[in-house]
Each structure stands twice: as C-alpha cells, then as structure tokens.
Write a protein that binds this DNA or RNA. Structure first.
Length: 311
RNA sequence: CGCAGGGUAGAGCAGUCUGGUAGCUCGUCGGGCUCAUAACCCGGAGGACGUGGGUUCAAAUCCCACCCCUGCAA
C-alpha cells in the first residue's frame, strides 16, 4: 500500500516513526515549507522534514497544497492512502479525491469536541479531566470528517501541553498503525459521522491568551499555565518592563486576605500568590531574557518580599 | 544582516554610566542557641568577573573582535 505522509510539527513524529518501524511503504513526506524564524531570522527545517530526511524519504514542501502544481505532483505519486498528522493546512476536495483508500487524520481530541488547531491546549485551559485521540477520514471541513476510531485517556493534574502532546502522539501513532493493518483493500476504512451538534472549536492560541489574570481562581490560572506550556506560556509582570513566565505552579486551598496578585513569601523559598480564589504556589519561573529558575532562586536573586505584586 | 537583554563564588543577582581592596540574598562547611526548626546568632571556605587583544600607573568597569545563553518578534 502506497502511503503519502503529511505532517509538520513534533506531534506528527511518532506517527511517522511508527509507519517506518512497521515497514509501510512511504512514498513521500509532505510538510510545510520552512520560513525564516527564530532568533536571528534563521531557517530551520520542520520536525517532520528533519525526520523524513533521516529516513531518506522524499520530502515535498508545497507553499499551498491546493495549488494546481502540487495536485499534479500528487496525481503522479498515486498514493493509495494519505496519512495526516498536524500538517497545518486545510486539504482541498480535489486532493482528497485522489487516494482510493481515502485520507486519514490523527486529531488529539475526542471529536467533535475541540476541532481546530490547538485542541490539546484548550482541553487543558478548560480544565478537562479526560481527552483522547481521534482517527478520522478527512473531508473538506476543519476536523469535521467521519470518525474511524477513538481512544480516551485521563488527564492528570501534572499533565501539561508538553506531556499530553507526547502521550497523545504516541497513542495516536499506535491506533493509526492498527487501522492501516486492518484496512479493507481499495476502499476507505469504515467510519461514522460526527455529532455536529456537540462540536466545539479550539482555535490557535494568541500571545494574549497567555496573559495571567490574577482575579481568576488559582485552579484556572494553573490550567492556563498547563495549557499554554508549549506556546505562548502563561505570563505576568513584576514591574512595567519585567515580564515573567510562570512555568510550573500548584494551586493551594488556603486563602490570603490580600488583593489578587500580591506575593506572600515564606522562609525565603516559598512563593505564594494571592488570586481571585485560593492561592497559587509558583514553583518554576522565567524572567524575560533569563533562564528558567526555581522560585527560591527567583526570590533570592530579585530580593522579593511579601507585599510585592504581580501585575 | 528582524528587535532587545545577559555571561561576576555551587544558585539567583548587584556593582559597569562616573576605572582605584570583589558585594547582596541563599546554599555549603564549622560552631552556638533552642523542647524544636526550611527558625535565629557567630565564624569559615569557595571568584582566571565568558574568551582574546587594546587603552591606562591602574580595567569586572573604557575601546575592538569573537564565543555562548535568553526574551520578544516571526
């Protein structure tokens, strides 16, 4: 079976690796073109491109997959099936019509919930206690296609976007391999349509999504820290120009009778912040232009005292 | 050639503008106090101030080059 793989980010890697490990015939890898990025405007390969080249696979990087030129390339490649994971562009119907066995996508949520670009992040931000992966047939909509199978898992209090992405990527890779192994010949696998009435949307995060509002309950701020861990990070300000990312924290049940955002320091090493409801203990923090550090180092180096405030 | 901050003791930072004995909060080691401590008191060890060159009587500090780290932006 001739498989064309499409993916871009880290999330797609375990699936690509699994396909290689199970000796599927991968006729090519499609990933987004790399663009000048990072400090100094450097150009870095997408994770999928780097991995694809490592396996000596042919890598395609069309500017837009819907452009006629790429569709033509695709026809010549004549894949039996297209496997998609975190690719980053919507696929046009003209493209979906090409592979006889269809186009399957791995999505890190329990569809129809959390359709869109940032399902894992929003799942955490909203404080969900369970999530999962969905393997589905791609249609022209955004994550609206028929569901082939799903697998749910519990979300732990220590889970962040980083750990969940890793867990779901591996879980999904296994599922996908099983589906490919059980494929009927020359037609798409069986699937059932989504209950569109229950759909929710998880749009790409913006930088502003990471801005901490200390009026919120400690648990919600904690969820924000977990959900924005990959990007943009949950941030606040110590002064007008000192921006800080809260990297790790823990909600505490006790209540401080001071305005939200006020710091309470115990024994020069425990950093508590008053919130709208409950208290947030900050464990790891990163001041702008500095490396990640423990709360204790932050307190010592920045000479913090009870009564200082996060803005 | 995107914008910016940084590299000083094991950690986090000040000192650099205005050159003149290496500092702060911790940690660590030793001692003391206490029923007790992540508490408190006393004392000690621990630094080629990122690297190389230059200016100077004198450089962490001023000048030049390079290496490394990070935030923003994408």
């Amino acid at each position: 079976m001739r498989i064309l793989f499409m993916g871009t980010s880290e999330f797609a890697i375990p699936t690509l690796q699994a396909l290689v490990a199970h000796k599927f015939e991968i006729i090519g890898v499609v990933t987004q073109p790399e663009r000048p990025s990072g400090r100094g405007k450097r150009v870095t390969p997408t994770p999928v491109k780097a991995e694809g080249l490592r396996y000596n696979l042919t890598v395609y990087q069309p500017e837009k997959v819907r452009h006629a030129r790429f569709l033509k390339t695709l026809e010549q490649l004549a894949p039996d099936i297209i496997v998609v994971a975190a690719f980053g562009q919507l696929l046009p119907q003209a493209m979906l019509d090409i592979p006889p066995c269809g186009t399957v996508n791995l999505h890190p949520s329990l569809l129809p919930k959390y359709r869109g670009a940032a399902p894992i992040q929003w799942t955490l931000i909203n404080g969900e206690t369970e999530t999962g992966v969905t393997v589905m047939l791609v249609d022209a909509g955004e994550d609206t296609g028929d569901i082939i199978c799903q697998e749910r898992i519990d979300i732990g209090l220590k889970d962040t976007a980083v750990t969940l992405t890793d867990t779901l990527a591996h879980l999904g890779a296994k599922r996908l391999v099983r589906i490919l192994n059980e494929m009927p010949p020359n037609r798409p696998p069986a699937a059932v349509s989504q209950n569109h009435a229950h759909a929710t949307h998880a749009p790409r995060l913006t930088k502003e999504n990471g801005h901490i509002n200390w009026q919120q309950p400690a648990t919600e701020i904690h969820n924000l820290v977990r959900g924005t861990a990959i990007w943009p990070g949950a941030y606040t300000f110590l002064s007008q120009n000192l921006r800080l990312k809260i990297l790790q924290c823990l909600p505490q049940p006790r209540t401080l009778t001071v305005p939200p955002g006020t710091l309470h320091i115990e024994n020069r090493q425990t950093l508590l912040v008053a919130t709208g409801e409950g208290t947030l203990q900050v464990l790891k923090i990163q001041p702008a232009t500095k490396k990640e550090m423990d709360a204790r180092d932050f307190i010592n180096g920045y000479q913090l005292r009870t009564g200082n405030r996060f803005l």
